[in-house]
Design a protein around this nucleic acid. Structure first.
Lengths: 153, 153
DNA sequence: GTTGAAATGACCCCCTA
DNA sequence: TAGGGGGTCATTTCAAC
């Protein structure tokens, strides 16, 4: 991981479809050296993949919510991961500090749909209760940049 | 927006670098018809862009947190958007239902960095107080799929 | 469809440990 | 002298007209 890698990551985060020749010009490498770098970054897991950023409304998601989970006793993380991964509306899940045990981000087509999703979460045997806040207007949503201490010089 | 568009979106969400020829084969269109579709989806804003998904740890983000903001009186959304957008560590911001007014997702290189970021947020003149929960282990993080009622048949 | 551009993989070179 | 990283070239694949 050197400055060239960091610059490639910055560029690819801004434009995931940038051609290798263009990336190469930006970092001062040939096309094939650039492709080798990118391939390595993918193989190492530094780049987890490439995706199109979709407008949530166009994708059919009118509503999203942040859902806190309060669970009973100890739950195997793998079990919970599997259960939550089975619900496509759950887009992220983290264990958290504080009173709640787990924090979910969920999307839904409408209020009824959201209600059904939360029901299914609440019906997981190890979930005691949930607390939901609706995400109203979207002020800001963007991919994380590179950390300043990793920014290319 | 028809089934072909929806299938294209599904494919591009899964692989943002997929060549048009491959996408075209999947949807039964020629390369150029496929490119026209994708260009239109980008122009319409359905596709907001293409990006590389980076491993947060590799990007230098060891910590992330969910931060509730309690604000004084009415704050212009644009003002808040601008203020928050100026902090690269703030990756999302939504106004929310419930006691808090705004919910942020922030990333930080370490605990000191997180503390500085929260300080800067708290120092915004219209922010009364904040409430932070640390995101510990990452159970699940993935892009939102298409809503079932929009899924290609 | 044809033609230029891009990506891929094979091969060799250089530097360094 | 083995391995990492880079360049060049030939071939295949992709994209623009």
């Amino acid at each position: 991981m050197d400055d060239i890698d960091r610059l490639l990551l910055t560029r690819l985060a801004a434009d995931g479809r940038a051609p290798y020749a263009e990336l190469g010009k930006a970092v001062g490498l040939s096309l094939s050296a650039t492709k080798r770098r990118v391939d390595r970054l993918v193989a190492e897991g530094t780049i987890r993949g490439f995706t199109a950023l979709l407008d949530p409304a166009a994708a059919g998601w009118a509503l999203s919510a942040s859902v806190e989970l309060f669970t009973t006793g100890t739950v195997a993380a793998d079990r919970m991961r599997r259960d939550l991964a089975a619900m496509p509306e759950v887009v992220s899940a983290h264990s958290v500090s504080g009173a709640a045990d787990t924090l979910l981000r969920v999307v839904a087509a409408d209020a009824q749909h959201l209600e059904r999703v939360i029901s299914r979460v609440r019906d997981l045997p190890y979930v005691q209760r949930t607390s939901t806040v609706l995400l109203l207007s979207d002020l800001l949503t963007r991919p994380a940049p590179l950390s300043p201490d990793r920014a290319p010089t």
